[in-house]
Simulated scan of single mutants.
Amino acid sequence: MAEGWIKLHRGITNNPLWTQDVFSRGQAWVDLLLMVNHEDKKILFDGGLVECKRGERILSIRHLSERWKWSRDKTKRFLDLLQSDGMITYKTDHKKTIVNVVNYSVYQDTIIQEKPVKSHRKATEKPLTDTNKNEKNEKNDKEDKKYIYIREFTENKDLIKTIIDFMKMREKIKKPVTDRALKSMINKLNELSKDESIQIKILEQSIFNCWQGIFPLKEGSYGSTGQNTGADKKKYNVKPSEWKPKATGGDDPI
Rank of each mutant, 00 (worst) to 15 (best):
A181N: 07
F208I: 13
Q227P: 03
G4T: 03
K234V: 11
R77K: 14
K69H: 13
R62I: 07
N103Q: 13
P245M: 04
G230T: 05
P16V: 05
E51D: 14
T129A: 07
I58M: 05
T92A: 10
K41D: 03
D40Q: 04
T178S: 15
H63L: 10
G230H: 06
D130G: 09
K53L: 12
N134V: 09
V36Y: 00
D46C: 05
K96E: 06
D252N: 15
D141L: 12
K244Q: 08
T124A: 13
L17P: 00
R62Q: 10
E155D: 15
I58C: 01
R121W: 08
L59H: 04
K145N: 06
L49E: 15
S105Q: 09
E114S: 09
K239I: 07
L59D: 06
N14S: 10
D179Q: 12
K118R: 15
R77G: 04
K74G: 02
K69I: 10
W70C: 03
V30E: 04
D179M: 07
I58N: 01
Q212R: 14
V106H: 10
D141I: 14
S184Y: 08
S65N: 04
K175R: 14
E219T: 15
L128E: 14
G220N: 05
R62M: 07
V101D: 00
T131F: 09
V106F: 12
E191A: 12
R151N: 06
K74I: 06
S84K: 13
I254Q: 04
K194G: 06
E196N: 11
W5F: 10
N237L: 13
D80P: 02
S221N: 08
I254P: 00
N14D: 12
H63D: 10
D232K: 14
K53G: 03
L59Y: 07
W68F: 09
K122C: 10
K201H: 08
V177E: 05
L81A: 12
E143S: 12
K188F: 04
S71K: 07
V117S: 06
S60T: 10
S71N: 07
L79D: 01
N156D: 15
S221M: 09
E242P: 00
D232G: 04
K145L: 14
K172P: 01
K218M: 11
V99P: 00
L32N: 00
T129K: 11
K235N: 07
N37Q: 14
L81V: 08
K126W: 06
H9C: 11
G47Q: 02
Q199T: 03
D252L: 05
D195L: 05
F78E: 00
L49D: 11
T129C: 04
Q113M: 09
T97Q: 01
